[in-house]
Structure formats: structure tokens, C-alpha cells
């Protein structure tokens, strides 16, 4: 694996291009993610956000260079999964599998469950019987059970109700500061992005913007990205 050139960075991406069939989804993308920072990735549907995360973990072929810090351990929380409802796999099965593959301990899995508010009873259930919110908590717990230094979150609160989203976002925010995690977060919620992101990467069909939220999340940039004016609510205290 090629490692980062600047030791302060957890990730460096250089001229990354990804083609799916005949279509170029990402073209010559370059950015860096400093250690312990949060990069929010935003953009309209089909802009290549999930493709980017998959390329970063090597699940998709790409041109260009992806350089991770030498000590990187990645935790990945995928977008909504298409799994059979009657799979005889419990949350505990999934946590045990992650722990065994990542070489961590069951104690790490228990801590991860506690951090995201996943009860022992819910974790013993078959995954098909979990609610959308419980399942998302389980996926975050699985990612954390591998004791990652970098978290890749692909819309981690999608399909979760409003109070659930809020508590999951709070838990993730707490984690980032307590464990000094580097985070790459795909989100459509610009208020959340504004609140948590150190930097923002905007993707939109061949174009991209990268920078601080205050510089990138401007009405003109957003209109250019989404093709229509985008309104979002930012709390006054966050502007200060």
C-alpha cells in the first residue's frame, strides 16, 4: 500500500478517476484528509459519492493514487443494505465476525454497542428483525468493533427516524472527539455537514469543490451543484 507523503494526513487522494463501464463517474479528483478531521462528501444522487468511498477501500478499480497513513484501520458503514429478512444471522454474529477478522476483542464489540445505544437484547436478534434504526446502529457498532482509526460513513442515518438520527449523530460526534477518529461522511443533511465537517468535498457529475464549509457551502456553489437553489438551516451559534 502507498502511504501518505505528509505525516499529518490520514489520507491523500491524487488524480483519482473511476470508470463504471463506459461512464466516467469520478474524474481526476485530488484532496487530502488531515488526521482527526472530518471530511463531508456531498452532492446530488449519482454524483459518485459511494463510488468514491468504494474506490478508497479498494473495492473498485481506479486510476490515480490513493495514499493512506501506514497505521490506518478502516471502519465502513455502508448505505442501506439489501439483505434477506430471514437470514439466520444475529447482530452478535456480525459483531463476532468483525472482531475475529479485525483481530480485536469481544470487549471492543460490547463497547461499540454501548456507544451507539445498541442493547444486548437487540444485538442478539436476527438482523432481519431489527428496525431500520437498530440496524444502522448495529452497522456503526460493527465498524467501531474493529477499533478503526478512520470511519467511512455512507449516509449512516438514512432510514432512521428523526429522534434516532439526532441521537446517532450525537453518538458519532462524541466518538470523533473521544477517539480522535478521522471521518469521511456522506450526507444529504447540510445542517449536519455544516456542524461536523472540517472540510467539505462537493461532487457533481464531473465537477468538484473542496474546502472549508464556510467557503464551499455557499448558495452559488450549492445551486451550481444541485442545479437549483438549496436552503438549509444553520444555527446561529455555529456561525459564530
Amino acid at each position: 500500500m502507498v502511504t501518505v507523503r505528509d505525516a499529518d494526513n490520514a489520507l491523500e487522494v491524487d488524480r483519482l478517476s473511476v470508470r463504471l463501464g463506459q461512464a466516467t463517474v469520478l474524474s481526476s479528483l485530488s484532496f487530502a484528509v488531515p488526521r482527526k478531521s472530518t471530511l463531508a462528501i456531498i452532492g446530488p444522487n449519482g454524483a459518485g459519492k459511494t463510488v468514491l468511498l468504494k474506490a478508497l477501500i479498494g473495492a473498485l478499480a481506479y486510476d490515480g493514487e490513493v495514499r493512506w497513513a501506514a497505521d490506518t484501520r478502516i471502519g465502513y458503514v455502508p448505505q442501506k443494505l439489501d439483505i434477506e429478512r430471514d437470514l439466520p444471522l444475529s447482530g452478535d454474529d456480525l459483531l463476532r465476525a468483525e472482531v475475529a477478522v479485525a483481530g480485536t476483542t469481544l470487549r471492543d464489540a460490547q463497547r461499540a454497542g454501548a456507544v451507539v445505544g445498541l442493547t444486548a437484547a437487540a444485538s442478539a436478534q436476527p438482523i432481519g428483525s431489527l428496525s431500520g434504526g437498530q440496524f444502522q446502529r448495529l452497522l456503526v457498532a460493527v465498524a467501531l468493533a474493529g477499533r478503526p482509526s478512520v470511519l467511512l460513513l455512507d449516509e449512516p442515518t438514512a432510514g432512521v427516524d428523526e429522534p434516532g438520527q439526532s441521537s446517532l449523530n450525537d453518538a458519532l460526534q462524541r466518538l470523533r472527539s473521544e477517539r480522535e477518529l478521522t471521518t469521511l461522511l456522506i450526507s444529504h443533511d447540510l445542517s449536519v455537514v455544516y456542524r461536523v465537517a472540517t472540510n467539505v468535498l462537493c461532487l457533481s457529475h464531473g465537477r468538484s469543490f473542496f474546502g472549508r464549509p464556510t467557503a464551499v457551502l455557499t448558495p452559488s456553489h450549492l445551486e451550481e451543484l444541485y442545479g437549483a437553489p438549496i436552503g438549509y438551516h444553520v444555527h446561529d451559534e455555529l456561525r459564530a
Binding site: 478502516i74 456480525l94 465476525a97 468483525e98 477478522v101 438482523i127 467511512l152
Partner: peptide, 20 residues
């Protein structure tokens, strides 16, 4: 291979990120 197979069948990306 049980644990690797479990992760991969739930999500190939989770398995890949865990080093499989």
C-alpha cells in the same frame, strides 16, 4: 473462513474495509 464469509455476505465493502 466463517467470519470472513459472514462479513462479505452482509456487505462486501465492510469485509473489504476489514482487510478481507
Amino acid at each position: 473462513d466463517k467470519d470472513r464469509l459472514v462479513l462479505a455476505l452482509v456487505s462486501p465493502e465492510i469485509a473489504r474495509a476489514a482487510g478481507v
